[in-house]
């Protein structure tokens, strides 16, 4: 299962970021330059190698615009591509890969996989560096680097990556109850956020901004003071309401007992780590969920390690929990994937 999750995770993360970047440009066809943008955002060695060569998200965006303007000017046109807007991928549909991007992804997927998706992102970058149109090479040149320099950085970076950073380590499921997580089922993932740690920290510690990175929450309202919930400085709780409409305007049906939850900051180490607790006071059997975000500065942004913890069920429910460990692993992965995607999107 973890193999499938690892492989799917690498491909899904890359596809999502690429299509989000295409949507920002008002495009529906996702091409190789969008793959390059997605790679510049990646937390994998491919992303680190690109950023080490100065190929950050903002640098690629600027280079693509300049390249397009230069190409249109070469055709005698004085127009530019429309100004990019915000990411609307989640509010629109009809996205597709161009034929060459599809062929490239297909080659990367069919190449021999070392283990559980590890290396997929690097194979995509390797294929982009030799793509025949020369588009990627032009964009990299505008970023002040070259395909050869990126290839060298990738070789060095991949060699330096310790085994613990493989895809296997990215989706750990703590079934044994390691230190600090006894009584919890947990999963961990890492995401690269294109913003300085101070900005990421400001987002993560503000309860009113939780909807920006926790997709299951639509709004956070006032302090939770009724129903016997205590309200003191050290353990303040807020009411968080599930979203009622999708970005495209369609309504979302949420069961009554899951419409509201309380949010509480359990612990925080300034600028380093924050732990939020989410509970459903109207659903007696719903377990407590914690999200821990550990921040670390990285070249061109911040690396955030996300840990999702679910309180292990007690009594006979525990047996059901054991039987459902596979689906639960998938749920935790989806949870982390959505939070990681939203966190990255918040700064794009």
């Amino acid at each position: 299962m973890s193999g499938i999750i690892g492989a799917a995770g690498a491909a899904q993360t890359l596809s999502l970021a690429a299509m989000e970047e295409a949507s920002r440009q008002g495009k529906r066809d996702t091409d190789i330059e969008h793959l390059l943008l997605a790679l510049a955002l990646s937390d994998r060695p491919a992303g680190s190698a690109l950023r080490a060569c100065g190929v950050s998200l903002s640098a690629v965006r600027r280079a693509i615009r300049d390249q397009e303007a230069a190409e249109l000017a070469a055709l005698g046109m004085s127009v530019r591509m429309p100004e990019p807007g915000r990411i609307v991928f989640h509010e629109t549909s009809g996205y597709a890969w161009t034929r060459r991007a599809e062929a490239l992804l297909s080659s990367a997927a069919s190449a021999r996989s070392d283990s559980e998706g590890a290396g997929y992102t690097e194979r995509v970058l390797t294929l982009l560096l030799v793509e025949p149109s020369g588009r990627v090479s032009d964009v990299l040149a505008r970023c002040g680097t070259s395909t050869a320099e990126v290839r060298l950085a990738l070789a060095g970076d991949t060699g330096k990556i310790p085994a613990a950073s493989s895809a296997r380590a990215r989706m750990e499921l703590d079934v044994a109850g390691a230190a600090g997580t006894r009584g919890w089922v947990s999963g961990t993932s890492e995401v690269f956020v294109p913003a300085v740690p101070a900005d990421v920290w400001a987002l993560l510690v503000d309860p009113l901004r939780i909807p920006e990175w926790f997709p299951a929450i639509g709004t956070v309202s006032g302090l939770a003071e009724d129903k016997g919930l205590e309200d003191n400085e050290s353990s303040r709780r807020w009411w968080a309401l599930a979203p009622t409409t999708r970005p495209d305007g369609k309504s979302i049906r949420v069961r009554e007992q899951f419409r509201r939850r309380t949010v509480q900051m359990i612990e925080a180490r300034a600028g380093e780590s924050v732990r939020w607790r989410f509970e459903f006071p109207d659903a007696a059997r719903a377990g407590t969920q914690d999200i821990v975000c550990d921040l670390r500065e990285d070249a061109g942004g911040t690396r955030v390690r996300l840990t999702a913890l679910w309180a292990r069920p007690q009594g006979w429910c525990r047996l059901v929990g054991v039987l459902l460990s596979g689906p639960r692993r998938l749920v935790i992965w989806l949870n982390l994937f959505q939070i990681g995607g939203a966190l990255s999107r918040a700064f794009r």
Partner: peptide, 29 residues
Amino acid sequence: QPLASVAADTTDPRAGLRAVTTLRTLADT
């Protein structure tokens, strides 16, 4: 607008073809 005043310049066909791809993308957008 002089839409393609130098479009007939075929001295660098590789660059020209890439430019046409960009033009097509602009038209689609």
